[in-house]
Structures are given as C-alpha cells and as structure tokens.
C-alpha cells in the first residue's frame, strides 16, 4: 500500500494504460507541452511521444468528435477537456456521436473513448465550476464516473480506458490534492457500475457524490459522536448506476439524504428519489432530502459560491432533520 494524491491516481492510470496498450492516446488543450492546466499530464509527452500525446487547437467540436472517429477506427483515445463545462460546447459530439453512433448504426462499431472532465466549484464561476453529470445521465449511451478518492480515481480511469464504451470521467478539481491509500497492483481496477459503501451504519443512508463524499464522511463522524451511526454510500459510477446498493441500504435505514454538487432540479438526487419510489417506497420512513445547488448558476465570489454549494453544515442539518 502507498499513499498518493487523487491527481497522482489519474496520472498513474494514464501512464500504466498507455504503457500497456499502444492504441491509447491522450490529447486536449495544453496537455502535452504544458502538462495540462491542472498539471496532471506533465511528462507524458516525453515518455510516449508527440504522436500519442499532443496539444489541440481550441476546437472542442473537432477534437472531441475526432475522439469518436479515432475510437471507431481502432484507437482508445483519452480526451481532456479543460473544464467539464466545455462539454456543452461539444454537445453534438458527446450526446449524438459518442452516445448514439453505435446504436444508430446497429452496433456495428464500438466507441472506446474516455473524456476527462475536470469538474466542481473552485472560485471559477458559472462556466468553469459545474458538476454536470446529471445532464449526461439523461442521455443514453454514455457511461459516467465521478471518483471521490485517489484509489477510485485511478481504478475507475483504468477501467474506463479498458471499457469499449464512451466514458465521461469527472475529476473534481478540489480533490486533486486529496490523499489516500492505494494498492500497488498494476491491474488495480474499480469496476464501472459498482457503488462503494464508504462507511457502514444503520441510522440513515447518506448518498454523496464526488467531492461531497469527504464532507459526508465528516458529517458521519459528527453524527456518530451524537449517537447516530449513518451509512455513507459513494455511487462512484452514475451510469451504470448501482441501484441495488442504495435500495439495500435504504431497506436497512429507512431514511435517505443525497448530497451532490449538481443543480437540484432533475439532479442525481431526483433520480434516486424516483428510483426509491419505484423500488423501495415501503421502506422509507422519512421523506427524501436533497442537498444540492439551488437552481442558480454558480457564482464566482467565494462568499456567494459557498452560499450555494452544499457544505458539511447543510448536509449535517439535512441528516439531523431526518434523525429527529
């Protein structure tokens, strides 16, 4: 076991998979010479050469779509967007091409494409600070992962690269420096579609996504001191979504809070709520509570941003309300 950061986990996954498979390539804006604006990919061009690691012009439509074209013709491209928000500049390529080319052509092709999407509010405002997973959960054909710790960051990225389907890989900017333990196994993979029970408990189910997970764990500590042992579930993959993990937990606890950095309306929590109506209504002992961004864009100034982003206190209060 070693202790690494989340950023290191991502980089190790890239390096290991590129060494393992020559069809894996990596490109995006500023990823080669500069090593990425978040410095995840520094040194990769030197190791793998300009043919496999290169910079692109500011042309998200062309280079994300090219990722689809390259995946159709035998490569496993990893495309880096500078910010997850830029997914919206390339909607056709993500939704209609990556998501639907295979289906529209009767399964004739596989699309082993990974799009890395740095997400999360970090004082960068409405067009650079979103966690837009929920938008893409609504479109068929895309797999979606949002790791919350270094081990998952690495294991999920390696699994995503090896997957034969397009995967949107959301890496939270505020987690890059987070530390955690990881196994040395070069084939350490975290399967897509499998949730993690980040902490076991029976008083309440707290589902937390991405950067909400560390906050949720802190809330769980605080509640434990007050005598409430809650369960924290980290879905890790939002598509495929591990429905049974949440249903089983709710059967045990009867109470659920969902903490996410998405907008409230039709966010991940909304889908979880609908799923529980369908699959576990008679196990619910309290109404669902969602801790999410009220339906406003993400403001830039810290004081405003912190007002809308779910924090430990808001998650704690939601849990307390249900535990009362």
């Amino acid at each position: 076991m070693r202790t690494i950061t989340y950023a290191q986990g991502i980089k190790e996954a890239l390096v290991e998979e590129m060494r393992r498979d020559p069809t894996v390539i990596l490109y995006g804006e500023d990823v080669a010479n500069f090593g990425g604006i978040f410095r995840i990919t520094s040194g990769l061009k030197e190791e793998f050469g300009e043919n496999r690691v290169f910079d692109t012009p500011i042309s998200e439509n062309a280079f994300v779509g090219a990722g689809v074209g390259a995946a159709l013709t035998g490569l496993r491209p990893v495309v880096e967007l500078q910010f997850a928000d830029f997914l919206f500049t390339t909607g056709d390529e993500i939704v209609l091409k990556a998501g639907m080319w295979r289906y529209g052509h009767g399964g004739a092709y596989k699309i082993p494409l990974v799009v890395r999407c740095p997400s999360g509010a970090a004082g960068v405002g409405p067009e650079h600070g979103q966690c837009p997973e929920a938008f893409f959960m609504h479109t068929p054909g895309l797999k979606i992962v949002s790791p919350s710790n270094p081990a998952d960051a690495k294991g999920l990225l390696k699994a995503a690269i090896r997957d034969d389907n397009p995967v949107l890989y959301f890496e939270h900017k505020l987690l890059y420096a987070a530390k955690g333990e990881i196994s040395d196994d070069p084939d350490y993979l975290v399967p897509l579609g499998k949730a993690a029970i980040a902490r076991e408990g029976d008083a309440l189910t707290l589902v937390a996504i991405s950067a909400m997970v560390p906050k949720a764990l802190a809330v769980a500590d605080r509640l434990a001191k007050e005598g409430h042992h809650i369960e924290v579930i980290d879905p890790r993959s939002l598509c495929p979504f591990d429905r049974p993990a949440i249903v089983e937990s709710v059967k045990k606890t009867g109470k659920i809070v969902v903490a996410e950095e998405s907008y409230r309306t039709l966010g991940v929590g909304a889908e979880i709520g609908a799923m529980l109506m369908e699959e576990a209504l008679e196990y619910l002992d309290r109404p669902l509570r969602r801790v999410a961004i009220p339906d406003v864009p993400i403001p830039t100034a810290t004081v405003l941003e912190q007002f809308v982003i779910p924090n430990e206190e808001k998650i704690y209060q939601a849990c307390r309300e249900l535990l009362a």
Binding site: V64, G65, A66, V68, A70, E93, K97, W101
Partner: peptide, 16 residues
C-alpha cells in the same frame, strides 16, 4: 457531424 469523425479516422491512421 461528419467532419470531426473524419478527422478522428485520419488521426487513427496517422497514430498507427
């Protein structure tokens, strides 16, 4: 939508 796909196919040829 064809242009980026064509570009990707070209990229594939070049990488290989």
């Amino acid at each position: 939508g064809c242009f980026p796909i064509a570009t990707g196919a070209g990229l594939s040829i070049k990488v290989k």
